[in-house]
Nucleic acid binder design. Sequence first.
DNA 1: AAATTTATGTCAGCCATGTTGACATATCTG
DNA 2: CAGATATGTCAACATGGCTGACATAAATTT
Lengths: 180, 180
Amino acid sequence: MADINLRPDPSRADAPANGNAAEEPVWDIIELIFFAYRDFVGDPDGVLAAFGFGRAHHRVLHFVNRNPGLKVAELLEILRITKQSLGRVLKQLVDEGYVEQREGVTDRRQRLLFVTPKGAALAMRLACLQTKRIARAFSEIGPEAHAEARRFLVAMINPEARGDVLDFINHGGRPRWPRP
Amino acid sequence: MADINLRPDPSRADAPANGNAAEEPVWDIIELIFFAYRDFVGDPDGVLAAFGFGRAHHRVLHFVNRNPGLKVAELLEILRITKQSLGRVLKQLVDEGYVEQREGVTDRRQRLLFVTPKGAALAMRLACLQTKRIARAFSEIGPEAHAEARRFLVAMINPEARGDVLDFINHGGRPRWPRP
DNA sequence: AAATTTATGTCAGCCATGTTGACATATCTG
DNA sequence: CAGATATGTCAACATGGCTGACATAAATTT
C-alpha cells in the first residue's frame, strides 16, 4: 500500500505532474485535435470552391477583413509564408475585387490591405459558417465553454508569441500586429 | 433601465443563446484555433525534415502506430484522401522500413498495416514532442484542463462522426475503425 | 546629394501533397 | 463461373508551399 493516489486506470497515466519528460503521449488530445481541425476547416471549403478560391485565399481574406490597413509584411508574419506564396493568392483576391491596396499615408512604399464590401461579405459568410460549429459546441458544453476553450487554445500557443497573438485577436478592428 | 444583464462589453455580443443564426462571429476562437494549430503541428516538422518526411508521412505513421493491423481502406477513410495520395507516402514509409504490410489472415486481399520497431520509435518521438506542448498547457490551466479540452474538441467534431471517432481514440491498441 | 536600406513586387522553377480517370490483379462471395 | 471487393499503379493536373535572383520606389542615413 505504498502508492495510494487517484488514478482510476493505470494505463491512462494522466496528470504528468512533472511536465518535463512527456513519458506517455496524450493520445486522445493529439487525435481529437486532428479530427476537430479537419471538420472545422472543412466547413468553408464548399463555399470557397464555388468562388474559385482555396484555403490560402480564406486565410488572407480573413486576416485582412479583421485588420483593415494591414501591411503586407505583417500579413506575411502572421501566415508565416513567403511573399511569393502570398503574392499569388493576394493578386487573385485583388484582381477579382475582394481586396484593395492603398498607399500608406506616412510611408508611401507600403501597400495597406483592405477588404472591399464584396470581400467583407465573403469573409463574414465564412466566419459565420465556422461560428455555427463553435456555437453548437458551446451550447452542448454549457456557459463556461467559451472561457474554457479560449484558455486551452491560448495555452497551446508558443508562450513567446502569446502576447502578440492576444493583442491581435483583441484588436477591435484596428490594425496593430508587430507595432503601429 | 429596461436591459439589465451581465454583458460587460456590448460590442462583444457573446452567448449567442439561440445557436442558430450565428449572427456575430466568434472571432477569438476562430483565430486562436489557427494560431494554436499552427504551433501544434509545427512541433514535429523539424524532426520529420531530418528524416526526409513531411506531415503526410506523420499522419500515416501516427495512425498505423496507434492501430496495428489497420486496413488501407480504413486509413483512407480516416485521412479522407485518395488511395493515390496515400500510396505515395505509404510506399516511402514501407520502402524505408517504418511500416510493414502483411496479408490479412481471413481475407488475403487485405494488406494490413503495422509499424516496425523503427516506425514505432519515430511515431513515439513525434507524439512525445506534441505531448510536451499539451502537458505544458494543461499544467498552466489546472487539473480540469484535460477533461475540458477533450469536451471542447469532441464537441467540435461533426456529430454523426463522433461515435466512430470516440471508439477509435479509445481503442486501446486494437484496430476497429468502421467495424471488425 | 549620394548611398543605403526598406517595402513590395515579380519571374522562373522546384517540391509536397492533394485531385481525377483509367486500368490491373488477386481474392472473396454468391 | 461471374461479379464484387481490396489494393496497387500509371499519367496528368492543381494548389500552395519553397528558393533564388532581380526590379522599383520611397525612406533613411551618411
